[in-house]
Design a protein around this nucleic acid. Structure first.
Lengths: 118, 118
DNA sequence: TGCATATTTGGTAAAATAACCAAATGTAAT
DNA sequence: ATTACATTTGGTTATTTTACCAAATATGCA
């Protein structure tokens, strides 16, 4: 691969990769509804604390979430809530299947929709 | 994980995962410039034919690209060129680092920028 | 028909990921 | 200071991913 921009390529891929796991996807959607502490995520996902912690570390490492310790708890939040625009588009891709992808994937963003608040 | 929508979650994650590899990222960007045949991608990436073929299969499986056989060659194209909007946003995230992400990630789309043609 | 070209498929080994448990760390309250 | 709670880190094992090679398949041309 001819790569003056190999590093950029890897960085971008890393961000997508971080979103490429159902549990982390769930977390991102959860955090889109507002920050929450690790224990809340553990409750929602139903996996081991350590597992959740590691998934959160992946998202953090990719720059998708930020964490803040307050008292005994650590709170995570989406660093960029607009990442949900992506997610909603992808959702449409999934729902509408292969055929309509072309139209559908573009829609949400171009009309400036943002359904984070729902 | 409480999952009436577990399947949806997995499908979305799969799409992100497909984008989560430098080589596949490169391919998507290459295809954003217009369809091309497998051999052109092989040349660009510099990996084995079989490796490229398998990466393309991942993208196809995820519904990101489509293939069409013409003569001896197989041509691939982006099923949804607007997926590049995502990629460019992510690019900004990478460039601007953690601090500015919040503003930057949103920009490209809201101003309707689309640099596919460059 | 038979050959060369283009691509995919199958197999295998190395590397990366993911889940859990146990132990370590940091913080607050006693 | 000790204890309890919240989270992270380290270790282990199972699974998945990736890359390459070799072999199979498909297509066009001699």
């Amino acid at each position: 691969m001819k790569s003056s921009n190999m590093l950029m390529l890897e960085s971008k891929a890393q961000i997508f990769k971080a979103l490429g796991h159902p549990t982390r996807m769930w977390m991102v959607e959860r955090l889109a509804g507002g920050e929450c502490c690790v224990c809340e995520i553990v409750d929602g996902v139903g996996a081991d604390f350590s597992t959740i912690s590691k998934h959160l570390a992946v998202l953090k490492q990719a720059g998708i979430v930020a964490d803040e310790k307050r008292g005994k708890q650590v709170f995570y939040r989406l660093k960029c809530p607009c990442i949900m625009d992506f997610v909603h588009c992808i959702e449409n891709v999934v729902i509408n299947g292969a055929e309509e992808q072309h139209q559908v994937l573009c829609c949400g963003l171009e009309e400036g929709k943002n359904e984070l608040e729902r």
